[in-house]
């Protein structure tokens, strides 16, 4: 207090990070122009990449920053898709339905949060998976879904394919940018700091005044909306909804792979993990079962040689984590 004259401050963003943000901004602008230039196949693939990035960022928010290890995010991928099917069936135009369905799924996540967030660690993980399976079973009973046969969002066929593809691409791009930026803003704020404290020690977090349940709930609902949005975008681009696919455990496995391989609990890691996963899918995706074995092999190699993920390439060499969430105190000299 004797040094009140010197205002203590948090260090500003490092120059390198500013460059990364600038480059990312320019890249986004470029990506905005891509569907006007690139062939349809590329545009479709890019939609998938954006969806993967949303998944990775959301699972990292949940598990990496809040310690909520869920293997049941497919519940929200499927519910988002199902809500969209229902809404479009009720007459809502498909493009707004992409977003409305994601928000409605968030309301359901609120209800689920009251139960699952009372559980800890392993129990929580199993509960999320069980819930996803139960919801899948319930949704399969809806006549509209036609059991495992599934259904299609036929209303999307009313649009010319080119126009449809371009719209979905731009919506996916905006959603991805929104998810990344929103996560950034959240983590930089109080909720982000509180989530990390809860991840590290929930009881100690409560002892410093953190409303642990409320913070976890906020993160859980946001991650659910994010996964639902990725799910509705995916449905919009693939048109067919099948409970087995929509609620499939593979979504959680993809999320886990991207986040762990990229670097859990780092901001940039999961995005890099999504890029790597996307590349692996492109290169080896046609090899069927071998592709899955390959993914497993990559995961094992990372666990053995680069346990901190791609971001470990920087960290292991003593460099600071790019786009780190760390708040560093600027200490007065002398």
């Amino acid at each position: 207090m004797s040094r009140a004259a010197i205002a203590d401050k948090i260090m500003p963003m490092p120059k390198g990070d500013k460059l990364i943000v600038l480059a990312a901004g320019l890249l986004l602008l470029g990506l905005g122009a891509l569907p006007f230039l690139a062939p349809a196949l590329i545009v479709d693939k890019m939609i998938m990449l954006f969806i993967l990035i949303i998944f990775a960022v959301m699972w990292n928010l949940l598990a990496g920053y809040a310690g909520l290890i869920s293997v049941g995010q497919q519940a929200f991928v499927g519910l988002g898709g199902y809500a969209m099917v229902r809404m479009v069936d009720a007459g809502l135009p498909p493009f707004p339905a992409i977003f409305v369905a994601a928000l409605v799924t968030g309301a359901l996540a609120f209800v689920l949060s009251l139960f699952v967030l009372r559980m800890k660690a392993g129990e929580f993980a199993i509960a999320t998976w069980v819930i996803a399976e139960v919801i899948r079973a319930i949704v399969s009973f809806d006549p509209i879904v036609q059991g495992e046969t599934g259904t299609s969002v036929v209303a999307l066929n009313a649009y010319a394919p080119e126009m449809r593809r371009m719209t979905i691409y731009l919506l996916a791009l905006v959603s991805m940018a929104g998810a990344v930026w929103g996560t950034w803003a959240l983590l930089k704020g109080r909720t982000g700091a509180e989530a990390q404290a809860i991840r590290d020690d929930e009881d100690a977090a409560a002892s410093v005044g953190i409303s642990t349940f409320r913070v976890k709930q906020r993160i859980y609902i946001l991650a659910s909306v994010g996964c639902a949005l990725a799910g509705t975008l995916w449905l919009a681009s693939s048109i067919t909804f099948q409970p087995r696919t929509g609620f499939g455990i593979q979504w959680s496995i993809f999320m886990l792979f991207m986040v762990l391989v990229g670097g859990i609990g780092t901001f940039i890691g999961p995005i890099l993990g999504a890029l790597l996963f996307f590349a692996l899918q492109e290169i080896f995706g046609d090899f069927g079962a071998w592709y899955l074995a390959g993914l497993g092999l990559v995961a094992i190699l990372f666990a053995l040689y680069l346990p901190r993920g791609i971001v470990g390439l920087w960290l292991d060499r003593g460099y600071n984590e790019p786009l780190s969430m760390r708040r560093r105190l600027k200490l007065p000299r002398g």
Binding site: E194, D200, D201, G209, G265, R326
Partner: peptide, 24 residues
Amino acid sequence: RPFLGMTVFENLLVAAQSGARLDA
């Protein structure tokens, strides 16, 4: 029981933000 994934300063920062409801 420190928050091990955070720095010393961040441990205090979150306590001041949450416990005392101070802005950043």
